[in-house]
Amino acid sequence: MAKRKKKNYASPSFKKVPVILSVTIVLIGIFVLMSSLKKITDLPIQGNNQETTDTKNEEFINKLVPVAKELHQTYGILPSIIIGQAILESDWGQSELSAKYNNLFGIKSFSPNDDSIKLKTKEYKDGKWIEISANFKVYASWEDCMRDHTLLFVNGVDWDPYLYQGVLLASDYKTAAKALQASGYATDPDYAYKVTSVIEKNELYQYDK
């Protein structure tokens, strides 16, 4: 009698996944996961960066407030204008001119007797920005620079001693900022707007009281 062949009852479409393939898939998954986690940890922490910047900016303002208030009491110039210009002109004391040479306001030198440094700067002329080289005053400290800045408004310039009277006599920062631009302190056609914006954003008007 012929032997019966055993039937294979397993589904013909069923295939066991080799162990090595399973391990490979798991390893790929782990690699992808680790890569994703690395990207997440490499991202800058925006909150901490902003907090650091805010702290440095606050420290910068606090350094200038006492001198600005003193100059206000003596000469009448608003502290908000002094500090606002310093922020705008020096980029919070980070510019080369302010960090290395203590010139917070971009004050130029026109006398051979001044301690000065020649640097490149941008000016607005004939409807466009151009780069020029100019001599800027060098100061021993930020305080010395702030005092010289105020005396510029008090004494004016050789050709017009009353050039900045509008800045000194202004009762509010908006009027003073407009007087700054009208007097030609800077060539930027938006200078008054920029100074005002800095003052309002940082609530510098609180120091005018």
Rank of each mutant, 00 (worst) to 15 (best):
N62K: 12
F136Q: 02
S36V: 14
I83S: 00
Y173S: 07
L64S: 00
N49A: 11
D188R: 03
L204E: 02
S171K: 15
W129A: 04
K137E: 03
A192P: 12
D208T: 02
V23E: 10
L163P: 08
I20D: 14
K108G: 06
K209T: 12
N135G: 00
E58C: 07
D114H: 02
L180C: 09
A10D: 14
L180P: 13
D126W: 07
Y185I: 06
I20M: 09
V65S: 01
K178Q: 14
L151Q: 12
I199Y: 01
L27E: 08
P161V: 07
K108V: 03
V167E: 03
F153T: 04
Q46L: 15
V19L: 13
A10M: 12
V67R: 02
E200L: 04
S98E: 06
S36F: 15
D160A: 06
P112H: 05
K38T: 13
L97P: 02
N8Y: 05
A10P: 08
V26A: 14
L180W: 02
T175S: 13
A182E: 13
S35M: 13
D158E: 12
F31L: 14
W159I: 08
K194D: 05
K125M: 06
A179W: 05
I30F: 10
M146G: 02
Y207D: 01
D126P: 12
Q50W: 12
I45P: 11
Y191V: 01
S183H: 00
I87P: 11
K6P: 05
I81Q: 01
T53V: 15
I83H: 05
K100G: 11
K178V: 15
Q181S: 00
Y173R: 07
V195R: 02
T52F: 12
N103Q: 00
T74L: 11
P79N: 01
A176Q: 08
K5Q: 14
K16L: 02
W142E: 13
I87S: 06
S13G: 05
S98V: 01
A2C: 07
